[in-house]
Design a binder for these strands. Structure first.
Length: 858
RNA sequence: GCCCCUGUGGCGGAAUUGGUAGACGCGACAGACUCAAAAUUUGUUUCCCUUUGGGAGUGGGGGUUCGAGUCCCUCCAGGGGCACCA
């Protein structure tokens, strides 16, 4: 009896597939296309289990669709620009380019070990000039279409390192390297006009019916369309020539009678103006700026305000003036950067009012509450109710009151109904080296000028150093100095590079024609786009996916593509988790440093000191709970790793990586091998015709086989890989237990073995090819069509129904499929257990659900 | 803080989408094979009650229904995103 040698076999088939160019594809208008794409990886060094899961799922889909007869495009590339390369440069002195390309080489080799059905001819890296040159062309063309503009916006500034920090580099308001308190600073930056598409991006979500509902919901909330009102409050005690009105946006104009203050953002123009003459205001604003730019930091900070001393006139109540505060929880980026506070009906306003002893006036009465005694306490009432304490609005519901308030404001000239979006334009300027240079030249006389097409690309200089803070492109002795394309005078290049989200906003289109001279070949994108199935992590649910949707629309305006939506189908897979280990000193340990001693206990491999075992969390370097895919593949083979990845947990759910699970998967590969190997000699030859009559047990086996084929196809279509795997286990159990003696059973056994091999093809492709060959077939299983089940063997003759009495199961009965209701009733009542449970009472009602259940109500 | 998701045996999960809860795998236990171990293999395995049999049970509490893991309300726990990580 031979043993399956995974390593040898996997190498053998990987080589053969490559030589036969099994996965290289071209446009073929005569065939239906299917574009499978997994989110391309950032080349961080080595592949991790998250990649293995992502690419296994994608590969199952790609191979399945290929077997279903589609012309399948399945490419791979590298999201190769980004911050970690610069960190490596600073920490280890390696050049970002060589660091990145080394990582790509390593990770490419690792991916190849997985046996993925990729068209490697189409490989791209976003840091390659061949890619980013095209991106610069797109930028220039978008500029011409007025989709790009320049404005000021805030960044996190590290005053010690003299550099801009990413949000993740700000920890508790301090720079991660310097530890210095960070400041908000304004810089002039480039923006993509994504808000021009707010409505369209929102409306089109309804059509994306192969996207997870939760992703569509998150995007809807992110775009955040809200109907409300802008209200102009007259400033009553101002001095000087400033604008005498404060404009706020609110979604609750119905609560205007409950207003007790107004608040403006720390970077509101009025705040800036006040700070010029008030040292206290300036100090407070500086304090707010220390919070950094992330919404999370701003909203979780304790609510604080600064009373400007200004007051504004309430538009409806003649003798009411409201104080104006500068507040740390008001965002300049949303609405008008100013709000009116109604503490009774907004939690943040309430917290603020309690702190600064401002009045809390309830103006919306919850249903069934008493207007005389109703009080909000510490919890604002945000639900629906009737307006009270509200003058002309009294008695109206929230919706009607909003309308009435807006009408009155408009009539008075104090405001109007407005639709506001939460979505902001996309700032893409980054003060970094390792990114796509922004192809713009700044001329003192002519202003910013796009680099002319014939001068593209603007290449990154190689000779840069990271020995001092700031952007190497700024420090470079010659790079930024150039001449103005318009006037010919001295000018400087824009030293910013693009956000790496730009790189990943069109790579799927580049894959259609990766070596095209322009950004993309129209014929190729018209054939391949949209991506039929996109697969990646849920962490990209909003930003990446929304930017790509915007960019595709921008590409359509520029004339490169004919579709608006890049991804027709989306699947978001869960994370790969692992237990965590800590030694007595609280130091994290790698799994290989830990030895299990049973019952959830563990010790250190060398010292034998006890180790505390923590629950499974997402694999991460910081907690050391990582398993190296390459080590797994070299021990068990790629098929085992792939099989385990999809076998237990549903792909959209988080999964736990365990040694026991991998070993179980490995045992199954061996079992399948033996199943074929042990029977090989007695089986009829491949392609032998079905013998005349089959024994009952052979027919029964065929039923199981064909039912499995039928159900597995459905499961794969619906991404229920774990169910398909369970069915294949069941089938393997049946095949293993089957006693074949006569010619008919041996024929049925061959059929069953061949079909199980074809079913595992997308999941364990190497083993499947090898077994297919063992079973006497020539050519590649990869080229064999997906099997279809014999319909006559899939349907059952008998159905088992549960019989309940008052909803409690008391017996089961076996009836022919679709048996009549009366037959089911009498069979149910004939059961002794049912009679016993009925306890002599008569049935008041009997509910019969065909082929499922009979419920007797007494 | 805001938005979104998840919760079923010792563990991962299944449940025909409102109709027999626990398929399949892992682990554990017992047996076979073996000098022994590994591998393989047979069986048992939600909990409680003494059994033929009965009761409880899908994070907690409540509701709708002939019937709820599935729908509604509420609470708890864990996770993802929050615009410069990718």
């Amino acid at each position: 009896m031979s043993r399956y040698n995974a390593k040898e076999t996997e190498e053998k088939w990987q080589k053969r597939w490559e030589e036969a160019r099994c996965f290289a594809v071209e446009e073929d208008p005569s065939r239906e296309k299917y574009y499978v794409l997994e989110m391309f990886p950032y080349p961080s060094g080595k592949i991790h289990m998250g990649h293995v899961r992502n690419y296994t799922i994608g590969d199952v889909v790609a191979r399945y669709k290929k077997a279903k007869g589609f012309n399948v495009l399945h490419p791979m590339g590298w999201d190769a620009f980004g911050l970690p390369a610069e960190n490596a440069a600073m920490e280890r002195g390696v050049h970002p380019a060589s660091w990145t390309y080394d990582n790509i080489a390593t990770m490419r080799d690792q991916l190849k070990l997985m046996g993925l059905s990729l068209d490697w001819d189409r490989e791209i890296a976003t840091c390659h000039p061949g890619y980013y040159a095209q991106q610069q062309r797109l930028f220039v063309e978008m500029m011409k279409k007025d989709l790009v503009y320049r404005k000021e916006s805030s960044v996190n500034w590290d005053p010690v390192d003299q550099t801009v920090l990413a949000n993740e580099q700000v920890i508790d308001g301090k720079g991660w390297r310097s530890g210095a308190p960070i400041e908000r600073r304004k810089l002039s930056q480039w923006f993509f006009k994504i808000t021009a598409f707010s409505d369209e991006l929102l409306a089109a979500l309804d059509e994306l019916d192969r996207w997870p509902e939760k992703v569509r919901l998150m995007q809807r909330n992110w775009i955040g369309r809200s109907e409300g009102a802008t209200i102009h409050f007259e400033i009553t005690n101002q001095s000087g020539g400033r604008d005498d009105r404060l404009t706020v946006f609110t979604t609750r104009p119905d609560t205007l009678f409950g207003a007790s203050f107004c608040a403006i953002a720390a970077n509101h123009p009025l705040a800036t103006e006040i700070a010029e003459t008030s040292a206290e205001a300036a100090a407070f604003i500086a304090e707010c700026n220390r919070l950094g730019t992330s919404e999370e930091a701003i909203e979780t900070a304790e609510k604080q305000g600064f009373d400007t001393g200004l007051t504004v006139q309430h538009p409806f109540v003649a003798d009411l003036q409201l104080p104006v505060y500068i507040a740390n929880f008001v965002l300049m980026e949303y609405g008008t950067g100013a709000i009116f506070g109604c503490p009774a009906h907004d939690q943040r306003d309430l917290d603020f009012a309690r702190k600064y002893k401002l009045p809390v006036i309830p103006v919306v009465l919850p249903p069934e509450a008493d207007p005389a005694t109703f009080d909000v306490g510490d919890e604002a009432f945000t639900g629906d109710g009737k307006a009270f304490n509200s003058g002309f609005l009294d008695g109206l519901g929230v919706t009607e009151a909003k309308r009435a308030a807006i009408d009155k404001l408009a009539a008075q000239g104090d405001g109007e109904g407005t639709i506001q979006y939460r979505l902001r334009d996309w700032g893409i300027s980054r003060q970094r080296y390792w990114g796509c240079p922004i192809p713009v030249i700044h001329c003192a006389g002519c202003g910013p000028q796009a680099v002319p097409a014939e001068d593209l690309p603007v290449s990154l200089p190689d000779d840069v150093t990271f020995d001092r803070p700031g952007n190497p492109l700024v420090h470079h002795p010659t790079w930024k100095h150039t001449t103005c394309p318009s006037c010919g005078g001295k000018a400087e290049r824009d030293t910013d590079t693009m956000d790496t989200f730009v790189d990943s906003s069109w790579y799927f289109a580049r894959f259609c024609s990766p070596r095209a001279e322009g950004p993309m070949d129209r014929g190729a994108v018209d054939y391949w786009l949209p991506v039929d199935q996109y697969i990646g992590g849920i962490e990209h649910a909003i930003l990446h996916l929304l930017y790509a949707r915007f960019f595709t629309r921008a590409l359509a305006e520029v004339g490169y593509v004919g579709v608006a939506e890049p991804f027709a189908g989306l699947f978001t897979q869960g994370m790969v988790c692992h237990e965590t280990y800590k030694d007595g000193d609280g130091k994290w340990l790698f799994p290989e440093e830990v030895e299990k001693t049973g019952e959830g206990k563990a010790v250190h491999v060398e010292t034998k000191n006890p180790v505390s075992v923590g629950r499974a969390v997402k694999m991460s370097k910081s907690m050391r709970n990582v398993v190296d895919p390459e080590a797994i593949i070299s021990t068990y083979g790629a098929d085992t790793a792939r099989w385990f990845m999809i076998s237990d947990s549903p792909p959209e759910r988080d999964m736990e990586w365990t040694d026991a699970g991998v070993e179980g998967a490995w045992r199954f590969t061996q079992r399948l091998w033996r199943l074929v190997d042990e029977n090989l000699e007695s089986l009829p030859p491949a392609g032998a015709p079905q013998p005349g009559d089959l024994s009952d047990s052979a027919v029964e086996l065929r039923r199981r086989v064909h039912k499995t084929v039928d159900a597995c196809g459905d499961d794969l279509e619906q991404f229920r890989f774990n169910r398909a795997v369970a069915r294949i286990y069941e089938l393997a159990n049946s095949l293993g237990a089957f006693k074949a003696s006569d010619a008919g059973s041996l024929w049925a056994l061959r059929e069953g073995l061949e079909l199980v091999v074809r079913l595992i093809g997308p999941m364990m492709p190497h083993l499947a090819e090898e077994l297919w060959e063992q079973l006497g077939h020539e050519g590649y299983l990869v080229d064999v069509a997906w099997p279809s089940a014999d319909a006559s063997l899939v349907s059952d003759e008998k159905a088992t129904l549960a019989v309940q009495v008052n909803g409690k199961k008391r017996a089961t009965i076996s009836l022919s499929v679709d048996a009549a209701e009366d037959e089911a009733k009498s069979a149910a009542l004939a059961e002794p257990a049912v009679q016993r449970a009925m306890d002599g009472k008569s049935a008041r009602k009997i509910i019969v659900v065909k082929n499922r259940i009979v419920n007797v109500v007494v």
